[in-house]
Design a protein around this nucleic acid. Structure first.
Lengths: 232, 232
DNA sequence: AACAAGCGTGACGGATTCGTCACGGTGACA
DNA sequence: TGTCACCGTGACGAATCCGTCACGCTTGTT
């Protein structure tokens, strides 16, 4: 559920949009130009704004510029509505930082799709869950490992094993810990499975496999910075 | 809040650490080597011990071995402090079961980070990478789905598909969107793959599979709250 | 009612994944 | 130096995963 502020003077259009959006589970608030837009935005804190450029009083573009100038509202996504003829010269709106635009006439469904698309895009950006360690970057969302910028495909277990190791670099992960965290084994079982997967990980990492260090008799450790090797 | 026992003879270092840790909301207790370590540990029952190996009297390593030998203290995490030069020969500490080590000089912040990392690992405190939607709870970390509290195993693709759907419930995900987000397909390809995986997901969800709704001609949608079905 | 487009479903086979085992190598310690 | 515990590695087979296809059903339209 998202809160959507609609700035539109034609009340029938506003109602139509609002009805459709609320049916899809959103909260739609409509205001015309008679009311001040900026105070309404600050009061309502909408997730997204739908702005008609063809407002009779203050030019819609002026409102838009004001929204972008104020730091409190600059990050709120805006979808612009224009009439058919305005399109070309008003695409300037996009260059000013609008997230999308729509030309009248349009179907409520179309607007809805644009809104959800924009919301998804915005929310995705702020929802990144990544682990950065030196040359390594773990992308949880896409279950990928980036090594020096190039993507590597890992299997489910490999990914989880590496994630566990990397989440606490500098920490030693005992065999029992890893078997518990990655495999869910409770009791300490004697198995070579862990070793095999460590090996497969190191293989995929190539030379960078050295970052997975064996602590003999104890377990394994991910070292972001490799200890300097003594030259001969 | 955790209780941390610091075994350190240099009082200024001990105070610095203690001050920093207490500012972060922890309870820090400092003792030097003049006092008996083992009795202090047994009396205080700390959540974690920070042990300086460079104690003048009894060797720090001896204390550490004793901590590990006693069943009452063997499970308490220990972070070892060493001077720069000692590193290589003292890594032996790790093999004896230390959870982490730090070489002097170090910043209090660094120690704090290590401590919280170890505590998190031990306490199994998981990150908040969870999505809650009605009866469903997605656990990103363990790639599991909890439905009404019981865990369901999903395959990699199934998990990602459901995650994508659930991240924006109320949004309709077009076939093209899903193929792009889950499979990484760029162009719109005609395939039944998506349908097959939707079906497999619904199967695993059982009756709750109804939460995945088909929007004919458009795509799919995850509905946290099912629309009321009209009785006959 | 007839039709077409869109969707659900079962089955199949190739590909991947993963646990296990045996064997050889390596480091620790006496 | 000998011994032993521990670790690395290659191979193998079972299980799973997953894309594809054919076919039938459903839905919406004329």
């Amino acid at each position: 559920m998202s809160k959507i502020l609609i700035v539109e003077d034609e009340s029938d259009i506003a109602e139509l949009i609002s009805l459709h959006l609320s049916r899809e589970g959103h909260e739609a608030i409509c205001i015309g130009n008679g009311l001040q837009v900026m105070p309404a935005v600050l009061a309502q804190q909408p997730d997204i704004i739908v702005l008609d450029l063809m407002l009779p009083g203050l030019d819609g573009m002026q409102i838009f510029k004001r929204l972008r100038a104020d730091t409190r509202t600059a990050t709120i996504p805006v979808i612009i509505l224009t009439a058919k003829g305005q399109v070309t010269d008003k695409i300037a709106g996009l260059e000013l930082g609008a997230d999308d635009y729509l030309t009248k006439p349009f179907s409520p469904r179309e607007l809805y799709l644009r809104i959800t698309a924009v919301l998804r895009r915005v929310k995705k950006v702020t929802h990144v869950s990544e682990i950065q360690r030196g040359r390594f970057m773990l992308d949880r969302k896409n279950m990928k490992l980036f090594l020096d910028g190039t993507a590597l495909d890992l299997t489910t277990i490999e990914f989880k094993l590496l994630t566990t190791l990397m989440e606490n670099d500098t920490a030693i992960h005992s065999r029992a810990d890893l078997l518990r965290d990655v495999w869910g084994y409770n009791s300490d079982v004697a198995t070579r499975t862990l070793d095999t997967h460590i090996k497969r990980l190191r293989e995929k990492l190539g030379a960078a496999g050295e970052h997975i260090v064996t602590i003999r008799g104890t377990g394994f450790q991910f070292q972001t910075e490799l200890a300097a090797t003594q030259p001969a």
